[in-house]
Structures are given as C-alpha cells and as structure tokens.
Design a protein around this nucleic acid. Structure first.
Length: 995
DNA sequence: ACTCTGCCGAGAGGA
C-alpha cells in the first residue's frame, strides 16, 4: 500500500523519504538506472535525487512509497550502487531475520508464512532445539560448571515450561532428556575451547570486511563475556527485527594484535550445515546490531551437536543482496491486493511470489497446502502467473477435493481479511513507537514515557520478570493503560526499541508494574523507558489459519464446508431416547423444570441435532441461563462440551453461573484476562497450585473435565489437537466474524451458535471489506436454514411498553413478557415526591412528566430547546459524546451512573436507560452508525423499566430506523411520548440522572 | 465520519 500520508519524513540518520517520481534511465548499451525524485520535507517541496545502479534499479519502488536511504548524499544526490549505499523499501515494515533467510530458497513460502503463522505445527526436533537453546543460554550467562548444566537441563525438562508442547507432540520427558544429554559433551567441549581455555584452541579464519590489508587472517577467538541472551532488536533503519540468541564480547587474537568486539552468536541444534540460510541469519543480526553498537562486521554460528563454531563475515555484497531480498518480500507483503484499473476500482488479490521449481524442497514445505490453495483459488485465473509444468498436476491433485464454491469462499474471505488487515495498518503497526515521540503519544493515552525502573526485578515464574516503573520526575501518569494490557517497553534513547514485551500487572497514580518476557536489570540504571500500548495484529493470523484449515482434505473440514459453504441441510435424529441415557433422565428433567417453553424447545433441538443448532436469543430472553442449562444437560448425558465466546467476559458470565451448579469445567486462557472468581479453574492456576510437572499429570488435567471453556481465539491450545468434543457452544455468535467463529468448530462433532442477528454484527473497519460482506457472521449465514433455528422469545428484562418498541420494529411481535411482574414493572424512584416539589416551576413540567414511572418510554425532542445534544445522555452511539457526558457527570460529582457506548452495552441491561442520539439538524451528512437498525435495536432493548431517548426529532427522521421508531411512537395511542424540551433543559436532565 | 475484541512471539529444525 502506498498510503503513508501521515508518515513523518526525516533526513539525517533516521532518514525517511517519500518517492515522488520514478524514472527508468539507460538502455542502448548503457547500464540501466532508476532515478528517484525523493523528498524528506513535509511539504514535499525540497527534493533530492536518488540514483539506483548495478541491479539496485530492480527494486520495485513506485511513486508515493516511503523509503529509507543509507549511505552518502552529495549535493542533493544519493548514489546507490555496488560500492555504496542501501535503499530500504517500506522501512517501517519490520521483517524478521528468519523470514528473510527463508525467502532465499522460496520467497513464496516466506510470504505465506507471514499470513499463516500456525501452519508450522512443531516437531520433536524443534522442541529439543528450543530447550537446548535455553539450557545453553542460561549456562553460558551464569558460567555454569558441567554438573550444574546437567542439573539445569533436568529442571527445565522436568519443569512446567515445555509440558504443553510435549503433550502436543505426545513426547515423554525422559525421551527429551535423553536427546538433550547427547548434546552436553560437545557443549562442554565448546566452552573449554572458547570460554575457559582459548589458548589451546584451533585457529579459525576470520577476516573482517574493514580490514583491507590482505595477509594472515587466522585468529584465535575468545568469548570474554556474555552481554545478553535473546536480545530483541527492532531496526526501522533496515526494516528488520529479530532476536539474537547470544550477544557476546569477543576477543580476536591475531599476530598483529588483539581486537575486542560485541558480536552475535547464533545457535543451531540441527545438522551442521553451515548453510546459506544459517549464515544469512547471522549477517542480518550483524545489521540489527548497528542499532545499538558499532558494526560487529561478523558473527558466529555455533552448532550444538558438534560444538563447531563457524565465523560468518557479512561482506557488503552479502548485506546488499539480503537487503534487496528484504525489499522484495516487503513489496509482496505491501502489495497483496491491487485495485483493478478498469471499472469500479475494486480491490483484487495479487499474485504471490512465483513458485519455485524444486519438488524436493516442496516435499517438506510446511506451507505447501496454502501454496497450492492460493494458486488454485486465486492465481489460476491470472494470465501473468505460470507454474513449473511438473507442479501443475500436483496442484490439481492436491486441491481436487475442493469445489468451485469452496475456492470462491476462500478467495473472497482471503481478500476481505487482507483488506481489513491493511486498514488496521496505520494504527496497529509498531511504527508509532519510533515515529511518534512518547510525549505526543501520551496525549492519546497509548503510552507512558520518561519512565525509570524502580524496584528490583523479580522473576515471578520461568521467563516472567516483574518490573516496576515510575516517572523520572515523579509526575503522575497520564496514560490510560489498563491492567492486563499488552505493552512494549523501549528505551527513550535511539536504538533501544522493543527491549521487551509483556503485560501490565498493576497501575498506581505514579507507578506501573509490568510482567515482561526479559530481564532489563542489566541496562544502565539511568536508562529512561517508554511503555507503549501494543495494538496487536496477531489476532489476524487466527482467521487466516482457520480459513486454510477449512480447505483441508479432512473429514471435519469436509463436513464444515458442506454445511457452511454449500448450505447442506442440517440433520436431526428422530427420537430423544437414542441420545438420552436412562440414568440421566431424572437429572435432565429437573433441569428442564426451571426453563420456559422456547428454552425447553432449544434443549430438545440441540440434543436431536447431528450437525448444528442456532439459538436466537432475543433481548432479555435468558441466553446465559439457557446456555448454562444446556451445558448441564449435555454433561448429564455424558457429552463433552467446548464452551466458547468471542470475549473472555462472555465466557466467564456463563461460567459464573455454571460454577453455582457445581458443574466441573476447565478454563483455558490467560488468568489475567479471566474473572477473579473463575481464575481457580484456569489451567494456569491449577498447574501452579497442584505444581503439575509431568506430561502425564497435565494430560490427566486436560481429560479431567468434560467441559472446557475458552475464548474462541484461544483454539491454538494443544488440548484441541488431541481432543474432540461432542458439542461446541458459541455464545455471542452473531458478533463473531466467520473465519474466527470457525476455529472452535473444528474441535467438535456438532455445534450450537447462540446469538441474535438483529443485534450488532461483527465489527469491520474496512469499508470495502464490509461491502463485500465481511460483517456477516456465521450465525447469520446459517440462519437461512430455518429448520436449525430455535427462537427464545420469552423475555424477562423489559416491561411491556419498552418491549413493544422493538417488538414492533424488529421482532414482528414475537417477543413476550415472561410474567405479569416483568410486564408491569416500573422504575423505583424513592425521591420523586421531593424532586417534584423542587421542579414546581412551570418551565420544568416536561421533566415531571418524563419522570413519571408509569411512562416507561419517552422521547425528548431537543429541537426547540437549544439544548446541545452533547449535554445529555447515558448511552450513545458515539465515544466522543460519552467523554463529554462523563466530564459533566464528574463536575456534578456523580460517578455511579454508568456511561457507555451502545455497542458496549450489548448483552447488558439497566433499570433506566437514557439514550443520547446526539445528531443535530445542522449536521451536513448522515453518519453511518445510526443508519444501522441493529444498533437502534440494541439501544432500545437495554432498559428494564424506563427508556428515555433524547435527540433532535427532525434531524433523526432522516435516518430510516429512527424515522420508523418515531412514527411508531406517534402512532401509539398509549400516551404522547414525545416531549418538546424548553430551553435550558439539559441541566435538569442531569439532576434526573442523579436519581 | 467516529462502533473495538481477540491473540505471546521470532525462530525452534527439516532437506
């Protein structure tokens, strides 16, 4: 994407330029060149010239792009060629060292891996590799003796940290330990040679690029000090990021003298290949090092199996080629869609990097499924894309299980997800951390700057370090970071970006404590930090992954494709007796007793279903109660249940109820995000309290409960690799986008979606994606199969008059009150009499009327009142309005009244609801939010006893849903609902709030 | 043209 309008441009070391023009020069015997007219001034008036030569002209740069230039600029001209300079395309897109090194062999794979992150499912070797890394890193940092290393290996292998992975791969701890043992002798040999006894070692050839003079470059290398492990570096200069296994101070002994350098050391536990991929990784790490220290020029590759260490020098040529490769990958990632030049300018998916002709490499490729899928669903129709001839029949064969409808579904959703991801780009990216000073970002509340560390760093658990920060000047924090938020900790100084990531643990007036993945105590005490709220994009990986899974050639995926894409009719069995075990009958009957008729019907329908059931939970119809009863019945019948929802809060809502009935369950997900009363059911807590340290115990825990609950993004948990559930229940299903909702469905035989498509749909930011249908939930899509739908129509929230609104407008009269009591309930206003006396003066008669408990619905017309819409309200479509209201309420010292958006109020209720519609007749264009009748429906179904709506009637009439509502209000003979407010009425309305 | 919640990740090896 070329839209970087807000990007800050700079010259100097961190120079950013915008490309204004691109000219291809040369040909006719002359070497081709590309001339770029670039500018770093905000006005784009002062321009410079950038000349690309010696194959740099192949960089796919276009006008509008942001580039970073490295090298020298002489009188306004940059020369980037064989000898000097680098051009980095889209430098704010940081690519990891492994992404680039893997793109050497197959760029297509590298690009696919950026989208489909979970495809690499791990193996024994990778797990052993990870564990070996940790053992080595800790041993070398703490200079451990061989006995201590053995001990450490034991604690790690028989500890808690890698149990999940071992369970996932069905590996035993003893097996892993055995394999680890085999590595230790070579590791000891290496420490002898390079750390303890460097004088005895063999010489190695190490020629650093800066040493021009030829001659003897054989040297002895000595590791003097380990400065860091897992050092995380972000380099917006080279557009790179990475974690460096070991950062070591190294002495190079030569005939001509001794040199000291800080160099990266890359560990490998696999085959001693000294391959180009491995070497490239080291070279990229030397580039990353430039962010923090002098150019190391070289690094080392250490193969743990043999203890052999190879020096890797990054020549200019190596670096240049790797940067060019990075630019290409960056180009493909930034141009994953394009607008068709003709017609309606619709976005289309672009081709991936071409497939390579290497069946050997493809055989072991973890992305092969996605590679074939994309070629079949997207690229096949493109004239410009060709495949190696040998590959064509393979693609054909590997995708033959997919019908055209499946391929269409895939490409449409792939496109929509990509569009949505791009539109988040501006906000999401980490680039704000380096592009916006902390002080400025703090105003938006997303950052806390100028912080220093205070207390000792505590290692709370393996790899979790508790850090405390406070302002350098002791000032109060302005940030609105919340407990549980993810944060990125960086140094305020240059080059210290992304030092660590973690979670906010506690927030005080002047202090923040965070649980970070790395220990920062080694940094100088004077280091000042900034804590940036991480606006995650990682979640976007889950829907891509689910989409890919849906296209797999497996029975589960095939069944879901049939049901979801091809709308096969959901099947039901005839008789309850075949699912209801006799011994469960009594228990089930007693649970059913507490339910109303449609709720009972829903239970029955689910029990009879072979595929799926949709439960429409209209407002106030007891969705939570119903789900809770369903879980109890299903587990009484001996079924296993996977219980999910989009948000943690919704999951815990049900669990809180379930806990009362003593139904056992296991809650997955980070304890911090879980309701305090439910935390004791989380895997994390149980593992801690029972100090589970063996794969067997963990497996026992996973199998101990037939009911497992998680947020639906949490389906990458290893439990789901091995367990299949009888039923999956998805709450809030009408608010979840299809590819996310799919996730939990792979883990069960049947599913139940609970929701109400008349309420708000999944949130989609990108308008084009929305127009393409991205906000259609799976619930809505499947609702056309009416035989799978049960409606909960008996509601216990609203009194009859409030209910009648939405009943008329939305539910075609299907809603009914659960009891007389519900139907007639009015607001309890104990101070009303006193207040009425206060309001005796005639100008306020309207307020008296509004407050009458037997007028449950009223609409206050602000048209003539001159009352600013921005003065009133409790729920509102707009966040800005809420801010104004909250401030006013604070001035009136009223904090008990909850102020929130309509969207956030979905699923909740209150006795009295005041809706502020905000819109004023002066508004030139209609906003989109109020056009959505689902939002209106949510707004008018939150109140139990009294619904007060405030807004300018003539303005609101321009919105079709509100027009309908107002018409209905006028047409009803119950009472005159609409009041015309006199001037200055808004003050009184706040008094009304204080009731 | 105003609505916002989920995910731990860059890299663990394989040819």
């Amino acid at each position: 994407m070329t839209d970087h309008t807000s990007a800050a441009l700079r010259s100097g070391l961190n120079n950013r330029y915008r490309v204004l023009e691109v000219h291809v020069v040369g040909g006719e015997g002359r070497d081709p060149e590309k001339h770029l007219v670039v500018s770093s001034s905000p006005s784009l008036r002062d321009t410079e010239l950038c000349v690309l030569q010696n194959s740099w002209e192949s960089v796919p740069v276009v006008p509008g792009d942001i580039i970073h230039l490295e090298g020298e600029c002489n009188s306004g001209t940059w020369i980037i060629n064989e000898q000097s300079g680098y051009l980095i395309l889209y430098p704010d897109l940081l690519l990891s060292g492994t992404t680039i090194s893997s793109s050497i062999r197959c760029m297509r794979k590298a690009v696919l891996s950026e989208r489909f992150r979970g495809s690499e499912c791990g193996s024994r070797q990778t797990l052993v590799g990870t564990i070996l890394h940790e053992i080595f890193q800790q041993s070398v940092t703490n200079n451990l003796s061989p006995e201590k290393v053995e001990e450490l290996a034991n604690t790690i292998v028989y500890g808690q940290k890698y149990l999940k992975e071992m369970y996932h791969l069905k590996l035993k701890q003893t097996e892993i330990m055995q394999e680890i043992e085999e590595y230790l002798p070579s590791f000891f040999k290496w420490t002898e040679e390079f750390v303890h006894n460097p004088a005895n070692q063999n010489k190695m050839q190490l020629k650093l690029p800066s040493e021009d003079k030829t001659g003897d470059c054989s040297s002895k290398v000595e590791i003097v000090d380990i400065l860091d492990i897992e050092e995380n570096i972000w380099s917006p200069r080279f557009g790179l990021k990475g974690k460096i296994d070991v950062t070591a101070r190294v002495k190079i002994h030569r005939q001509c003298g001794v040199q000291s350098r800080i160099m990266p050391l890359e560990l490998k536990s696999g085959k001693e290949s000294n391959s180009i991929e491995h070497r490239s990784q080291v070279i990229l790490y030397t580039l990353l090092n430039l962010e923090r220290r002098v150019d190391p020029e070289a690094g080392f590759l250490l193969y743990l199996k043999t203890g052999t260490m190879y020096p890797v020098t990054g020549t200019r040529m190596d670096r240049r080629e790797l940067i060019k490769l990075r630019n290409q990958v960056a180009f493909y990632l930034m141009h994953s869609t394009y607008k068709s030049a003709v017609g309606r300018q619709q976005s289309q998916l672009a081709a991936l990097p071409p497939a390579i002709d290497d069946s050997q490499a493809c055989k072991y490729c973890s992305q092969i499924h996605n590679c074939f899928l994309y070629s079949r669903a997207v690229e096949e129709r493109m004239a410009s894309v060709t495949f190696p001839p040998a590959m064509i029949p393979v693609i054909e064969r590997e995708t033959q299980h997919l019908k055209p409808s499946h391929l269409e579904y895939f490409s449409l959703w792939y496109l929509m997800l990509t569009l949505e991801m791009q539109s988040g780009d501006g906000k999401k990216g980490y680039k704000n951390i380096w592009m916006i000073p902390s002080l400025e970002r703090e105003k938006a509340g997303d950052c806390a700057g100028n912080m220093i560390r205070t207390d000792q760093v505590q290692e709370v658990s393996e790899g979790q370090y508790l850090h405390s920060f406070q302002r350098k000047n002791g000032a109060v924090l302005g940030a609105n970071l919340l407990v549980g938020d993810r944060v990125v900790v960086s140094g305020e100084e240059n080059g210290l970006l992304g030092l660590a990531t973690g979670y906010v643990r506690e927030i005080g007036a002047t202090k923040i404590s965070c649980l970070l993945g790395r220990n920062l105590s080694k940094l100088p005490e004077s280091t000042t930090f900034r804590l940036d709220h991480e606006e995650g994009d990682c979640g976007i990986g889950v829907p891509f992954e689910n989409l890919s899974k849906l296209m797999k050639d497996s029975p589960v995926s095939e069944k879901l494709r049939n049901l979801i894409i091809d709308f096969h009719k959901p099947r039901f069995i005839q008789h309850l007796s075949s699912v209801l075990p006799p011994e469960a009958k009594e228990a089930v009957a007693s649970i059913l007793k507490g339910l109303n008729k449609p709720q009972k019907q829903a239970m029955k329908q689910v029990l009879l279903s072979k595929d799926y059931t949709l439960i429409v939970g209209m407002p106030g119809t007891g969705k939570t109660t119903t789900i809770c009863a369903l879980v109890r019945i299903l587990s009484a019948c001996g079924f296993s249940v996977l219980l999910t929802s989009f948000t943690h809060t919704a999951v815990d809502n049900i669990l809180l109820k379930l806990a009362k009935f003593k139904v056992g369950f296991l809650r997955l997900g980070r304890a911090q995000k879980v309701h305090p009363d439910i935390r004791k059911f989380t895997e994390e807590e149980i593992c801690r309290s029972r100090s589970i340290k063996s794969v067997m115990d963990l497996e026992e825990l996973y199998n101990s409960q037939p009911v497992v609950a998680t947020a639906c993004m949490g389906i990458n948990h290893p439990i789901f690799v091995q367990k299949q559930f009888d039923f999956c229940i998805v709450d809030e299903a009408s608010q979840i986008s299809q590819p996310i909702c799919l996730g939990p469905l792979f883990c069960s035989k049947r599913f139940v979606l609970v929701g109400d498509h008349q309420q708000l749909p999944p949130l989609v930011q990108n308008s084009e994606a929305r127009d393409l249908g991205m906000s259609e939930s799976l619930f809505k899509r499947l609702e056309q199969n009416q035989n799978a739908v049960v409606q909960l129509t008996v509601q216990y929230r609203m009194n009859s008059k409030i209910m009648s609104l939405s009943n008329k407008l939305v539910y075609e009269g299907k809603l009914e009150c659960g009891s007389e009591k519900v139907s007639n309930a009015t607001a309890n206003l104990p101070n009303l009499k006193m207040l009425k006396l206060e309001l005796a003066d005639a100008s306020k008669t309207w307020l008296k009327e509004v407050l009458e408990p037997d007028k449950p619905v009223c609409f206050l017309n602000t048209e003539k009142a001159g009352c600013k819409p921005s003065d009133i309200g409790i729920i509102s479509p707009y966040r800005h309005q809420l801010k104004v209201i909250t401030d006013l309420m604070a001035r009136l010292k009223e904090s008990r009244v909850e102020v929130n958006t309509i969207d956030k109020y979905q699923g909740r209720d209150k006795s009295i609801i005041i809706v502020s519609f905000v819109r004023n007749s002066n508004d030139e264009n209609l906003g989109a939010l109020l056009k959505d009748w689902r939002r209106l429906n949510v707004a008018i179904t939150r109140a139990k006893h009294k619904l007060i709506m405030v807004g300018c009637v003539p303005s609101l009439r321009r919105y079709p849903p509100l027009e309908k509502l107002l018409c209905h209000l006028q047409a009803t003979s119950l009472t005159s609902y609409i009041f015309n407010l006199p001037a200055g009425a808004h003050e009184s309305i706040h008094k009304c709030n204080i009731l």
